[in-house]
C-alpha cells in the first residue's frame, strides 16, 4: 500500500462528516442523535461534523423504519452522496423495522433499501451507544485497510 493511499485512509478515518436523515422515526432516536452532537459529548474531538447537504457528507445516519413514502427520497439522498460513503442505522426500528415490522406502510429496516455498514440497536439508542458504534465503524475501517 502506497504512502498516498495510507494518508488518504488516515484522513477518511479522522474526518467523518455526517448527514442526519429521519426515515420515519418517532423522533426519540433523532433527539438522541442531536444530543450526541451537543458540547457535552463533543464529537468534533473525532472530527465528526454535522453537514446539511449530502454532497459534503461521508456517513448517512438514518433513524427509524423506512416508510413507503420516504423510500424514494432515501435512495435519492444516498445516491447524491459522493463515494466512499457509509450508512449507519440508529435505533431498533432502523435496524429491523422494530415494532413497525409488517405494517402496511413500512418496508422494514434501512438495509431493505440501501446497504448499511453499521447497526446501532436501542429504543432509543443512547448517545454513548452511538459514539461507541461510530468508533467501532472507524476501527473496522482501519482494520480492513490494514489487511489489504
Amino acid at each position: 500500500m502506497g504512502v498516498v493511499t495510507k494518508a488518504v485512509n488516515w484522513a477518511r478515518i479522522k474526518s467523518p462528516w455526517i448527514l442526519h436523515f429521519n426515515t420515519g422515526a418517532c423522533n426519540a432516536c433523532d433527539i438522541e442523535i442531536i444530543a450526541t452532537l451537543t458540547p457535552r459529548y463533543d464529537l468534533e474531538r473525532f472530527g465528526v461534523q454535522l453537514k446539511g447537504t449530502p454532497r459534503h457528507a461521508d456517513v448517512l445516519v438514518c433513524s427509524g423504519p423506512v416508510t413507503r413514502q420516504i423510500k424514494d427520497r432515501l435512495v435519492r439522498i444516498y445516491e447524491q452522496m459522493p463515494e466512499p460513503k457509509f450508512v449507519v442505522a440508529v435505533g431498533t426500528c432502523a435496524c429491523s423495522g422494530g415494532v413497525f415490522q409488517d405494517c402496511y406502510n413500512v418496508m422494514s429496516g434501512i438495509n431493505a433499501v440501501i446497504p448499511v455498514s453499521l447497526f446501532i440497536p436501542g429504543c432509543p439508542a443512547s448517545p454513548k451507544a452511538i459514539i461507541d458504534g461510530v468508533v467501532k465503524l472507524l476501527q473496522s475501517l482501519e482494520e480492513s485497510e490494514a489487511k489489504k
Binding site: 494518508a7 484522513a11 479522522k14 474526518s15 463533543d42 468534533e44 474531538r45 461521508d58 459522493p82
Partner: peptide, 20 residues
C-alpha cells in the same frame, strides 16, 4: 468543549481531495 485535534483541517482537506 475539547475541540478538534491539531491535524483536523489537514485531514478534512486530504479526505475531500480523495473523494468522488
Amino acid at each position: 468543549r475539547v475541540g478538534p485535534p491539531w491535524f483536523q483541517p489537514f485531514a478534512d482537506i486530504l479526505k475531500l481531495l480523495a473523494k468522488e
